[in-house]
Amino acid sequence: MLKANRRMVLAGAASLLLVRPAPMSSAWATPQAMQEAIRALVGEAPIRPGRIKLDISPLVENGNSVSVTLTADSPMTAADHVAKFALFTEANPQPHVAVFHLGPRSGRAIVTTRMRLATSQAVTALAVMSDGSVWSDRADVIVTLAACVEG
């Protein structure tokens, strides 16, 4: 059996100080940061509601794994198809969640994924079409058990 002496105890305490968790960051996204992230993706193109549907539950029990489905009204032909789907949040650590690149060979304009939500917030989905037009949908989500929490 190993006997602990004073040096071992002090060395153990010092090592705990070296591996302590970082303090909780207050660098959360804001609605303004989300708008800046959207503009970084689509530039000055006007964003219009419609043609895309964001399917997400309005009440989420656990923010660690939230199911999201994006669908768009598109024939998915070479002349008219969804080029990108994008997801943004206004209160996660990062406002830009994901971008999905599609094309006419995708067959259907549908993407299903899971994401984390740090707290109750608005989620915005965009569909960038092959002609450059940008369409949006938005959903307010209430999260009872938050994710993305450190510390």
Rank of each mutant, 00 (worst) to 15 (best):
V9A: 15
L70T: 04
V82E: 01
A14W: 05
H101W: 04
A37Y: 09
I142W: 02
M129I: 00
A78L: 13
R51N: 10
C148Q: 14
K53H: 13
A118F: 04
E44P: 01
L70I: 12
L102A: 11
V66F: 03
A122P: 00
P58C: 03
A146D: 14
R6E: 14
R138H: 01
A125P: 02
A79W: 01
P31G: 04
L87I: 09
S65W: 09
A37M: 04
T71S: 15
R48H: 06
G50C: 08
A98L: 12
L2I: 14
A13P: 00
P31M: 05
S67T: 11
A91C: 06
N64S: 14
N5T: 13
R6W: 06
V68E: 02
P104D: 11
T144Q: 12
T89A: 15
A11M: 12
N62G: 04
A29G: 15
A37V: 07
L41T: 05
R138F: 00
E36V: 12
A45G: 04
T77F: 03
S26G: 15
A127H: 01
G12F: 08
R20P: 00
E61D: 14
R114E: 12
D131M: 04
K53T: 14
A27S: 11
A79V: 05
K53M: 07
L10S: 10
L145F: 07
F85S: 05
L2P: 06
S130N: 10
T112C: 02
A79S: 12
A37F: 09
S106H: 07
R20D: 02
E44Y: 01
V60N: 04
V42E: 02
D140H: 08
A72Y: 01
V19T: 15
A83I: 00
V82G: 07
A40E: 14
V143C: 06
H81M: 03
M8R: 09
A14M: 12
A27V: 05
L41P: 02
T71V: 02
I47C: 02
N62Y: 08
F88T: 02
G107C: 07
G151M: 13
G63A: 08
F100L: 05
N92D: 15
A146Q: 12
A78I: 10
W135V: 02
H81K: 12
P58F: 03
L59F: 10
M24N: 06
P58T: 06
D73L: 11
M1K: 09
A13S: 09
G50S: 08
L87P: 00
V82M: 06
T77I: 04
P31T: 09
V42L: 06
G103Q: 07
L41S: 05
E90T: 08
E36S: 08
